[in-house]
Amino acid sequence: MSQYRLNYLEQLEAESIHIFREVAAQFERPALLFSGGKDSITLVQLAKKAFAPGKFPFPLVHIDTGHNFPEALAYRDWMAKEVGAELIVRKVEDTIKAKNLTEPKGKFASRNWLQTYTLLDTIEEFKFDACIGGARRDEEKARAKERIFSVRNDFGEWDPKLQRPELWNIYNGRIHKGENVRVFPISNWTELDVWNYIKTEEIPLPSIYFSHEREVLIHEGQLIAVSPFITIDETDVIETKKVRYRTVGDMTCTAAVESLANTLDEVVDEIKATRISERGETRIDDKVTEAAMEDRKKGGYF
């Protein structure tokens, strides 16, 4: 390879940095959706690099379901301070009260779908015209077809049939009043790319990404953290296990994996060896219907 050639991670990084700069230039009020998970952490790192030594140009917005891991919340607060970004937190709990919504029921009742309400309210409250998210196309087949600049109507809805052609590296972010654009700068990254990047860049992560002891409920082979947010029945099997999280979502709908991996090298090695997809292994909510993500996106989800 010539000395003037980027390796694959550097190429992905260059593409993402280009996208970030387009967002900052094309929109009046962009925001970065930040959950404290590895994908949005990668976004923050890319944005830091895109605008250095200038100010971090987006507020970090967290849609808090109230079911988060405390470690992720602590990390979120730390990260906002670290990059000097404004942190905007809006709680699903408040939306439920204000809008008189019905809490989902069931053993692992998830507020995941309700986040959409809070997200759309937050977009309206702050008049955000672009929301940057960490979704990747390798995650799921609805995401595989979504544009990097994904225009949503004033209900936040994605219409897969009305997507703009996205040609070369030219991004058309023009919208009508009330619409907004979801931007996915790491669309072309895979889970392993994200982990390799975090390793290369030595980005600190919330501690739950590494092996730790945790009380878990074993449900259909998945390990679900014991927390006040799930219903525990007498017949449930609860064990203390060495686990880590492969993805960070709500405590109610994210499963842990058994692991002794304490370092990024060990985690990356495990991810390389795994034979189960990220969503399949860790997301309880995607199993409901085969088209779960497609439906949620059409309804205004991230």
Binding site: R137, D138, A144, K145, P160
Partner: peptide, 12 residues
């Protein structure tokens, strides 16, 4: 019965 343009796939 329609096909929505391009899907992206990844492997290495």
């Amino acid at each position: 019965g329609i096909t929505i343009d391009v899907a992206y796939r990844y492997f290495s």
